[in-house]
Design a protein around this nucleic acid. Structure first.
Lengths: 348, 348
DNA sequence: TTGCAACATGTAAGCGCTTACACAGGCGTT
DNA sequence: AACGCCTGTGTAAGCGCTTACATGTTGCAA
């Protein structure tokens, strides 16, 4: 009975290192060394092992490897969503970097929900990842506790240190957003609406909003609560927010948006209201994803170094894992990108 | 010396199942059962174990678990790129489905390159994934050999069986593309350009192109080699292709594109040439990603059941893994979505 | 020739978990 | 009262690999 069942699932048992050793006429230790540290083995022996490996179609068993070496060669990443190309692409850059080093990427999404993130975090740690990449710095102390208790190397992307002792690889969201606001002001706008992402639990959104409001206020443009909308990051949310902001009597002449998706949504909303961009309304985004140049007029936005952050995260994490020492944090700059969606307000 | 080094890396050794067993006053087998099959353990015992687990902060060691159970609870997915939201979102749906069952997702991208895919495939198998999701059906016999030799459950997404005995979860690309062509013809277009993705190694692109050309030909519209451009799937490629197709003397009045990204690129190209859409030129896409409604006019396209494919892939793979039997393939329908980018040609 | 590195390989002890099997005790049936 | 069965738990044998240590070889200096 039992052998029957077994036969159904695994007609032949996969070759083990022992099979290879036997066929090559060496010990399992030598096979292991041949595969992992080839330079510690005589060429002749190495060849014999290689032949045996090929003949049997041997691949090391992952579980055995992990158990014995205490390494999974796996890194985890938890991002808010794959729906936004900015994260998806950063992830791809990370994965490509890791692939060069034979490390694989475990991914999960949090949907911008801290509890979700924590669940995923736990799962990843249980999977024994050697390192973890997370977006942003704002999360529960508990989450950080889990991380540090396990002594797992981790990198925080997208933000720069808030005096945190952790490895961060990011850019100054506040400053970048402030520059957008400054440019909008420079074009002469005074009635300005802001479409921000949800700020709770999201330090990037918070930082950007802070950059915007403080810059505007410094210029004497004070935003009322009805001038700022916080919403989720979808086209529909952006559109709805724009419609609301534009429905009042004293309509804004410019909409500063928390990211390109919201901005594209806002543009769609404005269009539906019969407004012309940028003649009747200027719109700015943030991220500079492809979408920014796919819409018309193209979006004024901020170019976020997403691929570089993804790639660097991979490099630094691997460095940390190998050396046992936390590497230096990294701060990139985000570049303002001027395009046609921003223009002076029509004299009205 | 040795203990020094150890101390540096791991001040406290992580608790093992044995520590838990000792503290709870039971055997390791009972701890294991408490955790994996709680209903086989008396409540009282289970509680004792739970208390011990909490007290020690115990998490099962992944390597040990894998080695003993011959299961990694990990599923791999190899997609062409994360850059296109259609795949990123499908992946997210897959991941969410798996998360419900405590299974994690390993991801990799192939950049539409079969060799790349095969490398990634090997890596994933070496990681001992319990199942694999791949896009499309066209790949080397060798790739299929690897898969079947290892007897790893795998699902092919996005296409429907080409008489393949494998688990496929897809839709009829040919038919969907044919419908697009039919609609374009219905609107009266006769001068038609096609911007297709690269067709080699890409059965979806091939199928779509076939659907388009055969439908057009059946209506007496014969495409010359200069009317069809095959390019990569970026906005820029779409734009460049459109410029080329639109630069000739007898300009097409409609452009049928292999996906929404190409279509958005084509729209941008047309705009730069001073053409008005849809008055001067109709454009159609494929996928119905957010981008399709972010551009103006909104794209006529085909709604691809990407989330459902992702989710179903997860379910069927898990089913296969658990039961040991390959589940039935699944065929979804792809719905034509009419929007403003398609209109009759201007009488010129 | 001898002694001693340096190198190549083998031996065997785990790594932490799951699970087949054995066993004890309680229950219902005959 | 004897029997068999079910339930709950323990015992212990692996799962396949890495690696510290031991052993055997070789080459070279003394």
């Amino acid at each position: 009975m039992k052998s029957d069942t077994e036969a159904k699932n695994r007609p032949y048992r996969l070759p083990t290192i022992e099979d290879v050793a036997r066929l090559a006429g060496v010990s399992t230790a030598t096979v292991s060394r041949s595969l992992n540290t080839p330079d510690r083995v005589r060429e002749e022996t190495r060849n014999a092992v290689e032949v045996a490996v090929k003949a049997l179609g041997y691949t090391p068993n992952f579980g055995g490897q992990v158990l014995a070496s205490r390494r999974t060669n796996t890194i985890g990443a938890i991002i808010p969503t794959m729906g936004n190309a900015i994260f998806a692409t950063a992830l791809q850059a990370l994965q490509e970097t890791l692939a060069l080093r034979k490390v694989t990427l475990l991914v999960a999404t949090s949907q911008y929900a801290p509890e979700q993130e924590q669940v995923q975090l736990r799962t990843m740690l249980a999977r024994g990842v050697d390192g973890i990449a997370l977006i942003g710095t704002e999360r529960s102390a508990e989450a950080y506790d889990i991380l540090t208790a396990r002594q797992v190397p981790f990198a925080l992307l997208w933000s720069i240190p808030d005096e945190l002792p952790y490895l961060t690889i990011g850019f100054d969201n506040t400053r970048a957003a402030a520059e957008v606001a400054r440019r909008v002001l420079e074009f002469g706008h005074r009635r300005i609406g802001v479409i921000s992402g949800m700020t709770d639990g999201n330090d990037r959104a918070t930082a950007r909003l802070r950059g915007i409001t403080s810059t505007l206020e410094a210029a004497g443009v004070v935003l009322g609560p009805e001038d700022v909308i916080r919403c989720h990051y979808t086209l529909e949310d952006g559109e709805a927010a724009a419609r609301r902001l534009l429905s009042g009597a004293d309509r804004p002449t410019a909409l500063i948006c928390g990211n390109d998706v919201l901005a594209a949504g806002a543009m769609r909303g404005a269009r539906h209201l019969g407004l012309n961009i940028p003649a009747d309304l200027s719109v700015t985004g943030f991220d500079d994803i492809d979408l920014a140049t796919a819409v018309s007029p193209a979006l004024t936005t901020v170019r976020v170094p997403h691929k570089r952050m993804g790639a660097s995260a991979g490099e630094r994490l691997l460095e940390w894992i190998d050396s046992g020492h936390q590497p230096q944090s990294l701060s990139y700059s985000a570049e303002f990108v001027f395009r046609d969606s921003l223009a002076p307000p029509s004299s009205g």
